[in-house]
Amino acid sequence: MRKDKQNRGSWRYHVFLIGAVIILGTPLYYAMMMSTQSLGETLANPLAPGQSFAENLERVIASRLHITFANSVAASLTIALGKTALSLLAGLAFSFFRFRGKWFAFAAILFTLMMPGEVLVIALFRVVSVTLGLGNSFAGLVLPSLASAAGTFLFRQHFESIPSELSEAAQMDGMNPLQYLAYVLIPLSWNTIVALFVISFLVGWNLYLWPLMIITDPASQVVQVGLSFITQSEGLAAQNLGPLMLGAVISSIPPLIVFMVFQKHFMRGFAISREK
């Protein structure tokens, strides 16, 4: 009887949700259509595919989006790898050792959890560019993103859920902590590792304010900033946003793929790292 009731009402759900999908999807569809259009085609019919994909692509390549794209791949992979590795090691230290000063180390890391990077960005800029002399360098771009309080807690929490017996057995077998990490913990933690890696990759890919400040050379810029090189390119009418849209679509391919492949991991990891 319940099933009946559900089916009777369900066409309304379809109408409602199709409406929602259309409204939320229109900007995406519009961006994709625009990336194939010239200004004239946009004015004629903004919601139909145009003929100017090749021209737009030429402009995008002329403003060297492929270079900033590659820079972004390198930076986000480095950030994701570094963050995951650092958090893994810190989680290991907190979960499997008893040592003097543990509480202070823990509190020091915990406290940074609520500090958004934007608040410190001015002083950080001066520290990295003046004190460390890393202005306009790859190291200056990625290093500030490496430490992660959320990642450390993610692993700590995950490791505490692993039965103590495993660690006891490992110690009796004479394993050292690093062997335990390599042979027992990592194989048991792939879900968490992938989740953190994927989130960190997306966060690194979306960095904008920091690269805008620290990188001054267009050739080492990241793709989010590189998009504005398209609109600044010579001889382009200010209203012709087709090339910019193509650039936006291209720069969204990696996060979309990551999102598609790892959706389950991603949301699970996000839920854990944010709710706890």
């Binding site: 650092l86 958090s87 090691l89 810190a90 290991l92 230290a93 907190f94 979960s95 499997f96 050792f97 008893r98 040592f99 543990k102 180390a105 020091a108 890391i109 940074t112 500090m115 410190l120 002083a123 950080l124 001066r126 520290v127 990295v128 460390l132 290093l143 500030p144 490496l146 430490a147 992660s148 309080a149 450390t152 103590s164 660690s167 006891e168 110690q171 050292n176 902590p177 335990y180």
Partner: peptide
């Protein structure tokens, strides 16, 4: 019994990259 015994400095070594990074890029700024 989960804790590894007798590795005095190792936990600090494991924490060092994270602690140095937050000291340099969060607390100092």
């Amino acid at each position: 019994s989960r804790f590894f015994k007798g590795w005095g400095w190792l936990p600090w070594l494991l924490l060092a990259p994270t602690l140095i990074a937050i000291a340099l890029f969060v607390y100092y700024p």
